[in-house]
Design a protein around this nucleic acid. Sequence first.
DNA 1: GTTTCAACTGAATCATTGC
DNA 2: CGCAATGATTCAGTTGAAA
Lengths: 369, 369
Amino acid sequence: MAKCHPRREPAVQLDHIHQGDCVEVLNSLPERSVDLVFADPPYNLQLQQELWRPNMTRVDAVDDEWDRFDDFAAYDRFTRAWLAGCRRVLKDTGTLWVIGSYHNIYRVGAILMDLGYWILNDVVWVKTNPMPNFRGVRFTNAHETLIWAQKERGARYTFNYEAMKALNDGLQMRSDWELPICTGAERLKLNGTKVHATQKPGALLYRVLAAASEPGDVVLDPFFGTGTSGAVAKKLHRRWVGIERHAQYVQVAAERIAQIEPGDLARELFVFPRKRAQARLPFGVLLEQGLLQPGQTLYFRDDDARPAQVLANGQIKCGERIGSIHEVARALLGAPSNGWEVWFFRAPGQPGQPIDYLRAQARAMRDGA
Amino acid sequence: MAKCHPRREPAVQLDHIHQGDCVEVLNSLPERSVDLVFADPPYNLQLQQELWRPNMTRVDAVDDEWDRFDDFAAYDRFTRAWLAGCRRVLKDTGTLWVIGSYHNIYRVGAILMDLGYWILNDVVWVKTNPMPNFRGVRFTNAHETLIWAQKERGARYTFNYEAMKALNDGLQMRSDWELPICTGAERLKLNGTKVHATQKPGALLYRVLAAASEPGDVVLDPFFGTGTSGAVAKKLHRRWVGIERHAQYVQVAAERIAQIEPGDLARELFVFPRKRAQARLPFGVLLEQGLLQPGQTLYFRDDDARPAQVLANGQIKCGERIGSIHEVARALLGAPSNGWEVWFFRAPGQPGQPIDYLRAQARAMRDGA
DNA sequence: GTTTCAACTGAATCATTGC
DNA sequence: CGCAATGATTCAGTTGAAA
């Protein structure tokens, strides 16, 4: 394939784990090639001593080599490097998710703002079953924080609003997500011990990917670990790219993902249609289609006191005001307004209805009904 | 009194609002004189345009002069100055609370770590009634973040563990606090308009002061506003010190606090978190948890004749109907219907069961099995 | 007095397209 | 790039008037 396009920058190798240092690998990838980054970086927990439960069992804490940094400055340098690397490989329309705790998330958030990322939301993962505070000296640390940011302020980005709303039984999805931690059968183990100290639940990744990517999009995870993001990406028909230093994690992740069957599921199951995607339909088309007649009367919010006359050119006239349905509505309301919703028509023997109803008819006619 | 100890640094003037610039006043106060700082600094929202609700009313946004900064660098300088000032006046055993949103909290958190504060917890205030996202372009911004930090790592500090546990019906108080925003009779108004754009609920301050101070302790608020922290401090028999620039806020706060009778605890301060057992569980969670798969078939009342397909966004499709489990069931029945009871799933080699069985499983997972 | 309903509101970084 | 035109979009709670 590469031979066919010798001058083009190589495409990123998809559905593949790159073993190596995260910053080095990031810098070797082509720029503007990734739609979504999910990053679960080391938290720099700085734990200093062992912790024992009241029942005298020892807490198996995160003490891995990869979570040790000399000081804040070292952690900041590392953070700036990988965040900048991710920004380079992101498409301009891409977004980034980072998860962290109070140990690191404030530093991460400040640095990504300084690098030019623009925060869209922060989201709190509220854990239904967190580890208690055994010593009774602080509040139960029952949440982690995710930051969702776009590459640059003002760019277009993917947010499957309706899908999120549907997933939340018809109410807008909020910034607090209540989900259990990764335990039981979901937790990857070897010889009875957990493979990775900080494996994230698939449900968390499901929501992230479903919210902020589309089927076929490329999802990059620079701290791949045991590959939860890749596993969920495969299930949701996204492409994935992993970066991971440690051979054991790479091996476990590869095997895990290979076992997943995205299934013969129709792709359409994973397309979340957006209302915005509907093609624009000018008001004048209603005249051309014969759904409205020149001279016919419309009523502002179905109010007899404010009739308007439909002109043959697709404008309307209300008193002395002439303009589009939107312009006249805006003048009457003193506020930005959707003319399709506020102007009503009346058919003989029928109650008034918004002209948006006629637009739906016109669309059906146009789309070949 | 001062005459008796002419050589000692003067004590901070208690139960008093210092009108003036917060950093200047802080630097004029005696060092190591304060037990607890509660700070609600400007968030630097950077709003750029008007926002209208779908019903064409305008959102009354925070556009006050005190929330405007030239750039991140200016905001950081300001933040470093007041955080350093607070650290100087804090006793070594003192702690600091700061509240913020994603606009500012990451910068605040990073700076306070750099200044030597040591974070004890972060806490999320989960709002029961946040403002929705009217344009459908992000998640509902439904929480704010509080950071709780001690002056220096390892010092003794006040945490009323048992009181918090009692306040949470006998369970350890967690880092997620579910509380309503400040509305209704609690919201201070003059001539029908809110006095301050960002008045915090007393219940939030109640929990902060009850957790991290003792009766008689000195509580300092460098952004006093309309004095919620002082009002709660007085109710809880703490001493308070306020700093506020604006004369009108100072006046309103002083009058408000003067009217308070300590010990006369307002009922709204005892807002308890909702029982988790009653929490709603959206159908989509079954997908996120992997209890159902996209594309899987459900059966209306276990009837082969009416299968439905589970979509990846948590809706179902039965024939040409698409909607929530409740909506589709309602359409089939012609009556309001509980989708959890009428839709059945079938596991291999098992009789069909209502999906309510899966909801019970998901709840068990969520509630910590 | 009780119930119903319309109007209003809250720390909000809140659009996209074509000229 | 800027500007103008088109048009998509809300949840929980309070208040007060109407029924």
